[in-house]
Design a protein around this nucleic acid. Structure first.
Lengths: 241, 241
DNA sequence: CGTCGGGTTGATGTCAATCAAAGTAAGTGG
DNA sequence: CCACTTACTTTGATTGACATCAACCCGACG
């Protein structure tokens, strides 16, 4: 309730940390009751990271989970010789961190400035143990991520460079607004050309060329390298193959 | 218990269908108690399919789930123009079918001869509702599939044709024996060259050439097109990039 | 003003796709 | 048993899409 008292001894009071947190509305915390929220919040803190900060390294032990509140995080893997592949993007309000494993399978890096709610592994596990609802909610997220990973495999394996770039732009347009799934017609790219290349399995140069081509064809407009406008989403859509 | 009586009125009797079923040992049914097993088995049946049979079509409503008992199933997606991408392989004892969705996101096809336990959607959902243990078990499978999908994205996006083929052979070697995760040195390929190409984002011809190259280099031996021998797994491993 | 990171554009090279042909094993029917 | 078909695979020649190499542009920043 909005009128909950700060000094109330009532166990159902919403923790201060959680009062205005988006995660209670759209994120995993919507699955929690007040007691569970309180238990989790005692071992949580909100943190800010700048674009480029590494949040988690591949093969490192997991000590905490991150509830993404704002911004975009890129998940990637590298081969021994340095070739890199972005294997996923996380948008608010996703939970980050591999559940039920001891070490991370990916590197996580802030693609834009991000706000996180960092939750200790043990507190998360404790609440998970007695909240099947929470696990269910994360299950739904995991299934969605699996669907998205498989969609992306089609893009990586079977699409041309032009189709890959169009697909990427469409993906970003679709996730730009966390409150709805509809694609948006004007947005900022959260990734550099190099990251886009690593996401698409292309080089920087090829990404740049294909973006230029979309621009001269009138499918998109570009301002300051990072801002994209799409006058007609259907035209972009058909370029996705 | 092995001595459970067929005519017993005891509710804990193991259903006939389930008596010798692998799924109780390694699969999802290990998470169920006798009552749940009985409830599920009343709406289940074991079926056999031949290689090539389609088990589920993309975008079709899901009416049942399939518990894979033996064989290999390939999951794929196609673009409008017919380009195809295999987005996953399922081995026993995986559960097939997208949970918590109304329609399938992939086409599922028997890659080899397969045995399935087909479970009605409603029975599955009913048991799921009161067995968080079952959902947890499937959650673990889903997380594993997500890890594998992301591993494969690296292969699709960043590896050369030679590395892709080596990676594929290593993957099959690793899954050939359902009882252990260690790769095996002699196995049958569950997929045709065309399917391997669709899995790797390559053409038939390129797959064939790279397999031939691995053979002349002494990394693998091939018999009857489908049987592969690997004298030295480490040598295959280094070819994976 | 110089330099540095990120981006674009152009010239050239290369790996895998495409086009083409032929080999092999497993039917099928006479 | 043998011709014939069919599906699958292999191998060769050529082409093309994207990578690579290289130059340059632009804004930020010391």
């Amino acid at each position: 309730m909005q009128t909950a008292q700060t000094n109330s001894v009532e166990p159902a009071a919403i923790p201060i940390l959680c009062r205005n947190c988006q995660s209670r509305r759209l994120g995993m915390c919507a699955a929690l009751n007040a007691e569970q929220l309180a238990r989790l919040s005692r071992h949580s803190r909100h943190v800010h990271h700048h674009a480029g900060d590494q949040l988690m390294a591949d093969a490192m032990p997991i000590s905490s989970y991150g509830n993404l509140l704002r911004g975009v995080v890129k998940l990637s893997k590298v081969l021994e010789d340095g070739r890199q592949q972005v294997v996923g993007l996380q948008f608010a309000p996703d939970l980050m961190g591999r559940l039920f494993a001891n070490e991370s399978r990916v590197t996580a890096e802030a693609a834009s400035d991000v706000d996180l709610c960092v939750v200790s592994k043990s507190a998360m596990e404790s609440v998970l143990r007695d909240s099947p609802e929470l696990e269910h909610r994360i299950m739904l997220q995991t299934l969605r991520e699996l669907d998205e990973a498989r969609d992306w495999m089609v893009t990586l394996g079977r699409k041309t460079a032009a189709e890959k770039v169009a697909s990427f732009l469409y993906l970003i347009a679709s996730h730009a607004d966390p409150d709805q799934d509809e694609p948006v017609t004007s947005f900022d790219l959260p990734l550099s050309r190099a990251d886009i290349g690593d996401f698409l399995g292309l080089t920087i140069e090829t990404v740049s060329r294909q973006m230029s081509k979309l621009k001269v064809d009138g499918v998109i407009g570009i301002e300051n390298y990072r801002h994209v406008m799409v006058p007609d989403l259907a035209r972009l859509r058909v370029r996705c193959g």
